[in-house]
Amino acid sequence: MTGALTLYDCLTAPSPRRARILLAEKGVPHSTVAVDLRQGEQFTEAFRAINPLCTVPALRIDGGLVLTDNAAILAYLEARFPEPPLSGRTPEEKAEVAHWHWRAEFEGLLAVAEVLRNSSPAMRGRALPGPVDYAQIPELAERGVLRLQQFFTALDTRLVDRPYLAGEHFSVADITAVVAVDFARAAKLRPDERHPQLLRWRARLAERPAIGPV
């Protein structure tokens, strides 16, 4: 039955990497269809029929329903494949996971996107993903750099006395945060000696086959 799951993926993009890690950590069998974003395959009529938002990841599940964002993919996989739990075990842990997952998305991934989409010549006219073109705003790139620097500091402080962002257990908050930290390299930003706890955490995550080294 799980063979019916199909992930529309792109190895060079951060968002589908989150879905890949989640599926791997859950041990969920699935097939994969590569979508070449650099060649604009997400804008073809064939892919628009799968996901009109023209983005990856997309996960086709049993019955033909297509989930077109990581939030929906997480909700589905946690409900259908509850072990291991990646959204928390206790009410308190679930709240911590939700908080740090949101921060990793808003302060981490969105900040990297601000930098790259508002500064890269290849993204001119494509400042936001999806079917609608938007102009770049250079000031957002400048702000994104500052946000990422603060994000690294916040993670380092959080990890002083715990192995993972939500405490003792690996969670989806760690998945999104590590994707953000790794993707920040594309914006020429990475943790350094000012972030010893963040570096320790990244080294710990490197031991997980679904994540691997930087």
Results as ranks from 00 to 15, higher is better:
Ala49Thr: 06
Val160Gln: 14
Gln150Asn: 14
Tyr76Ile: 10
Thr157Cys: 13
Arg103Met: 14
Val35Leu: 13
Val160Ala: 15
Glu139Gln: 15
Ala46Ile: 09
Arg190Leu: 08
Trp100Leu: 08
Thr153Pro: 06
Ser87Trp: 08
Arg124Gln: 14
Pro16Ala: 00
Leu165Thr: 10
Val145Glu: 10
Gln197Glu: 12
Glu207Val: 11
Ala186Thr: 03
Ile50Gly: 12
Leu53Gly: 13
Glu139His: 07
Leu159Arg: 05
Glu92Ser: 11
Val115Cys: 14
His169Trp: 13
Gln136Val: 12
Gly167Trp: 00
Trp100His: 06
Val172Thr: 04
Pro91Thr: 00
Tyr164Ala: 02
Gly167Pro: 01
Leu205Glu: 02
Pro196Phe: 02
Arg147Glu: 14
Ala122Cys: 07
Gln42Lys: 08
Lys26Ser: 02
Asp9Leu: 04
Pro138Gly: 04
Thr55Leu: 02
Leu67Phe: 07
Ile211Pro: 01
Pro16Arg: 01
Pro16Lys: 04
Ile137Arg: 13
Glu83Gly: 14
Arg147Asp: 12
Leu205Arg: 02
Phe152Asn: 02
Pro196His: 11
Ile175Gly: 08
Arg60Ile: 08
Ala206Met: 05
Leu198Ala: 08
Leu198His: 01
Ile21Glu: 02
Asp192Lys: 08
Gln42Glu: 10
Asp62Trp: 08
Ser119Cys: 07
Phe152Lys: 07
Thr2Cys: 08
Leu128Glu: 13
Pro138His: 00
Asp62His: 11
Ala71Lys: 05
Leu53Val: 06
Ala173His: 00
Leu189Tyr: 02
Gly88Asn: 04
Glu105Asp: 11
Leu74Met: 07
Arg20Leu: 02
Leu22Ala: 09
Arg147Trp: 03
Gly125Ile: 06
Ala4Phe: 05
Glu83Asp: 15
Arg48Ser: 12
Gly125His: 03
Ala13His: 07
Ala184Gln: 03
Val132Trp: 09
Pro213Ser: 11
Glu83Pro: 12
Leu146Glu: 12
Pro213Met: 00
Leu22His: 11
Arg20Gln: 05
Arg162Gly: 14
Pro91Gln: 04
Leu22Glu: 02
Asn118Leu: 08
Ala141Met: 07
Ala122Gln: 13
Leu198Thr: 08
Ala95Phe: 02
Ala210Phe: 06
Gly88Tyr: 00
Leu23Trp: 05
